[in-house]
Design a protein around this nucleic acid. Structure first.
Length: 677
RNA sequence: UGGCCCAUGGUGUAACUGGCAACACGUCUGUUUUUGGUACAGAAGAGUCUAGGUUCGAGCCCUAGUGGGCCAACCA
């Protein structure tokens, strides 16, 4: 058994506890309840991963339930997209459910509640009701309609259902407690009149149930054991429980299990937004090409960008589940996709920013078909042929006339390897009138062909370049993406709208040259463009035109070195430490002082003494009052005091008292320090 | 002038109350390499928001403070 015991997250702990307390494993059941009012994004992926992941872990069913109680915002397009995305991620739902399927049941229960005096029709304006609701710090007051008779309520509610009233004239409210500190308990709305076409129920209803009433009861009807949602629903839990307890009496034999709502922190990603409303705005204002624009953090966008379900799942697994607000660094997402693609994507060569390279000693008109390994990480990936000739394209970035020793690429008089081909040496350059390099001339070592086994072929050269034969190159459009927002948290600024941070340069279209092998590529195929990054074939590709999306770049150490080299010449600069006051550091050192082994204690003492040089007496004095038992802190204070006294601090009553008290202490270390003073 | 939730390296998540707090990403070194990728080896970086308390012993329990989040849609 090499099974590694992974630590459980808090939700798994809850489930394990429930199981331990006698809950039958086969009653476990979960659900993912999106509202079909937009596309799913990477944040939803966490919720999906949690509930579907739990389903897999416990072999329990997971329902996909569309929370479709607001016909004004919801559309079939979104239902289809949501199903497509979840299926693409590789999850299978047990049942496809719709809250709207429960409208009748919900209605029947509502009649019961009215009869039991637990709900009433209110006929005020929304403004009047809002006023009576109070505020978070102020209790509410009862509606004048709160005590309508059951008969009157029944009749009015029937009228609402029958379409006898205009929208906004009446609502149905639960009768709970207008003084509850939780505002959701102050007679929440259960139904409103809405003359709108519903994507499933058409015009059958003109009253629609509200979220709290619908969601919890949908869970109950489906007998969901654990209803998991994000943190902002925590206050709803009290209402969730209230409704479910009222209903329980009506149907306990049919629906014996009471679901349990638990909340986790939603996922936030740096440099992007996670709000369907805001994403919709980007779509509507055409800042992106649609919900599936590869720059969008939607699942559809990520898919089109070239992300894989595995990478996304790994990502969600890695970020974990907890209750504190978090912002995940995009670098983690990028790590996950690179890790996956590194193992699975075939290597090819493509030049995005070309400059002509002529091998002057290579015969004109000669073409060789060279072997190119598809994937060094996968022995079974095979290889393909790549044509080589006298005139090639290489990246402009890969040549420099005057290069320093840190530059491993092509320069005059030095040798580099052309990937899968020969070793070449830079000879000279041809420039246009403006001084731009138009051609690079080089010579090649005839015996150095990759894989030929000759002595020359195994010579070590500093750099390896990718290239493509001009005569054989296929033109392709490459869409290179930068982050959609320039700010780390675009929607977290009170004073600025997230739209202000939209990066105007998030898309760059490049006309690239790719090796002919790519002519066969199909929409969705993923490749590594050697030395550049991962790319996938976009759905806009036609028979005439190949289009690639850049998924993510390779890790680029050179990109990090380059600016440093320039910087070093520019400025000497000393680095700014984030400084905490020295007394704070002393307190910290002191806290653990007594637990340290002797050797480390000595080091800590020296540190304290050094820090003490910069401690003003006013900072130290409060520490004299440290509780007797916190001897570590007192020792640190004593050491500090020693330094201060040495530096001319005068003794006073407080100081003497502190020393006296220390001399009487049972901690020997403290006594020793005190004696020295 | 309320209620609820949260607080652990730069980021995210762990840690049965018990030995100088672990893992991943990120950062930095080095080795290998026909990708300045990958892989491998290693390093730096927190002493767990603060103050009290309980305990022989607290990141974990209690109290208070501080900081952050959520709650006043006929949205979900």
């Amino acid at each position: 058994m090499t099974e590694e015991t992974k630590s459980l997250n808090f939700i798994e702990h809850i489930i394990e506890e429930d199981l331990a307390n006698g809950m039958a494993k086969d009653t476990l059941r979960f659900r993912f309840p999106p509202e079909p009012n937009g596309y799913l994004h990477i944040g939803h992926t966490k919720a999906i991963g949690i509930s579907f992941g739990l389903g897999e872990k416990y072999n329990a069913p997971v329902n996909l339930r569309f929370d479709d109680t607001n016909p004004a915002k919801e559309e079939q397009e979104y239902v289809d997209a949501i199903k497509r995305d979840i299926a693409w991620l590789g999850y299978q739902w047990a049942n496809e459910c719709y809250s709207s399927d429960y409208f009748q049941q919900l209605y029947d229960w509502t009649i019961q509640l009215i009869k039991d005096g637990k709900a009433y029709v209110d006929s005020q304006s929304s403004e009047a009701m809002a006023e009576q609701k109070g505020t978070p710090t102020q209790v509410g007051t009862n509606s004048p309609y709160r005590n309508r008779t059951v008969e009157e309520n029944l009749e009015l509610f029937q009228g609402m259902k029958d379409g006898k009233f205009e929208a906004g004239t009446h609502v149905l409210r639960a009768k709970i407690d207008m003084e509850d500190p939780n505002m959701l308990m102050r007679d929440p709305l259960m139904y409103r009149i809405l003359f709108a076409h519903h994507h499933r129920t058409g015009n059958d209803w003109c009253i629609y149930p509200m979220y709290d009433w619908t969601h919890g009861e949908s869970d109950y009807i489906e007998q969901i054991s654990h209803s998991l949602c994000s943190l902002e629903f925590k206050p709803h839990r009290k209402l969730y429980d209230w409704f479910k307890e009222q209903i329980y009496d009506y149907n306990k034999t049919e629906y014996p299990l009471l679901p349990k709502q638990r909340e986790f922190a939603r996922l936030n990603l740096s440099y992007t937004i996670m709000s369907k409303r805001k994403l919709l705005k980007l779509v509507e204002e055409k800042l992106v090409s649609g919900w599936d624009d590869p720059r969008m953090p939607t699942i559809s966008g990520l898919r089109r960008r070239g992300y894989t379900p595995n990478a996304i799942k790994k990502f969600v697994e890695t970020v974990g589940v907890a209750k504190r607000e978090n912002v995940i660094d995009v670098s983690l997402l990028e790590f996950c996709i690179r890790e996956d693609l590194n193992k699975t994507a075939n290597r090819v060569m493509a030049v995005l920013n070309p400059v002509k390279l002529i091998i002057t000693n290579y015969p004109e008109g000669k073409v060789e078909l060279l072997d190119a390994e598809n994937n060094p990480e996968d022995e079974n990936a095979g290889s393909h042929k790549v044509p080589f000739s006298r005139e090639l394209y290489i990246e402009k970035e890969d040549f420099k006339e005057d290069a320093g020793s840190k530059y491993f690429r092509l320069t005059l008089g030095k040798e580099v390897r052309l990937k899968n081909a020969y070793i070449i040496k830079g000879e000279n350059v041809v420039k246009d009138a403006d001084g731009n390099i138009t051609e690079i001339h080089c010579t090649y070592d005839v015996d150095s062909l990759s894989g030929s086994g000759t002595e020359a072929s195994v010579r070590k050269v500093k750099g390896t370049l990718h290239w493509v034969s001009i005569a054989h190159a296929v033109q392709a459009e490459v869409r290179v993406y930068d982050r959609l927002f320039s700010d780390e948290a675009p929607d977290s600024h009170k004073d600025k709208d997230f739209m202000e941070f939209v990066n105007p340069n998030s898309l760059t279209i490049v006309n690239a040259f790719v090796e002919p092998y790519l002519k066969e590529a199909k929409v969705g195929d993923r490749f590594q463009f050697q030395r550049l990054g991962y790319f996938c074939v976009d759905k806009d590709t036609t028979a005439e035109k190949l289009i690639f999306n850049k998924t993510v770049g390779l890790r680029d150490t050179w990109a990090k070195i380059k600016p440093k080299l320039q910087e070093n010449q520019a400025k000497p600069q000393q680095k700014q430490q984030h400084q905490r006051p020295p007394i704070e550091e002393i307190k910290q050192l002191g806290k653990k002082y007594t637990n340290l082994p002797e050797e480390k204690q000595q080091i800590a003492k020296e540190k304290i003494q050094a820090l003490a040089e910069n401690v003003p007496y006013e900072d130290l004095e409060p520490l004299f009052a440290t509780a007797a038992k916190k001897s570590g802190t007192r020792i640190a204070a004593m050491i500090t005091l020693g330094v201060l006294l040495k530096n001319g601090q005068e003794r006073n009553g407080n100081i003497n008292e502190f020393i006296e008290k220390a001399l009487d202490d049972k901690n020997e270390l403290l006594v020793a320090e005190a004696k020295q003073l």
